[in-house]
Amino acid sequence: MDNEYIIEVKDLKKSYDKVEAVKGVNFSVSKGELFGLIGPDGAGKTSIFRILTTLLYPSSGEATIFGYNVVADYKKIRNNIGYMPQRFSLYQDLSVIENLEFFAQVFGTTVEQNYDLIKDIYSQIEPFKNRLAGKLSGGMKQKLALSCALIHSPDVLILDEPTTGVDAVSRKEFWEMLIRLKQKGITILVSTPYMDEANLCDRVGLIQDGKIMTINTPHHITAQFGRKLWEVKSDNIYRLITDLKQIDFVDTVYPFGEFLHITSKTNEIDDNKLKALLQPNHTSIKLNQINANIEDCFMELMNK
């Protein structure tokens, strides 16, 4: 049972009226795996998650969790998954502890029974346990939502963009918590629009416009980039974009933070030649060859 798939999605499609949000998606998640679905807003991530959590019927195709069909056996699935929707969906007018107790009760368990599982996360918000959930900060809301999703000790955790709108420190903490949960044997399916979080997953699927472009480990995906990549920087970064695009051997130009990532049509760039071309308009030009990251791969795949 080493390679047992917990979640299997086969040729899944979902249409809303005339818009096709999910256009035939296939992927599977093994037991104990941390699987990330990476893609921009509107790529279809939430639709897939809502189908998996039995909240939405697929238009066609099939999805199973623990071998149970999400349409036919939804009752069996609901007992055993923890879902954290993209929007904070707990009762804002109930306190932290009231929310937690309510969700424990409706799953037929108690907070004490599964306290060990949520201790790491819950202990951080426990000092505020009598505060109304609506009055918590963004990061604390995430922790409460995760605690509530975990309170019945599910085997699968489905998290829809859990770190969207959360500060950088809380994001980092949140991912550390996910990795600890994974170590406890929980299978985790997570979606995110942040490419940097992809490296923390065991495997990722890059999704764009309702289709999965590739599925692999983060390492393999970046290894598949298959071209040389450079980062460029100068004093006038905006001017640099337009100027680089006019150079004939430059292929793609994408801004990444303070750098621009560029590829070459010949897969080679002559350092001096490029600098000479840019010299009239730019000062302190820096050019380094670098390894591709997930986002570079995403951009590359998107343009294929």
Binding site: L55, K75, I81, P85, F88, S89, Y91, F103, V106, C148
Partner: peptide, 13 residues
């Protein structure tokens, strides 16, 4: 409106 119905719907209620 608050989205809490989503969270209720995934429970065995």
């Amino acid at each position: 409106e608050m989205g809490t119905i989503e969270q209720i719907n995934v429970t065995p209620i």
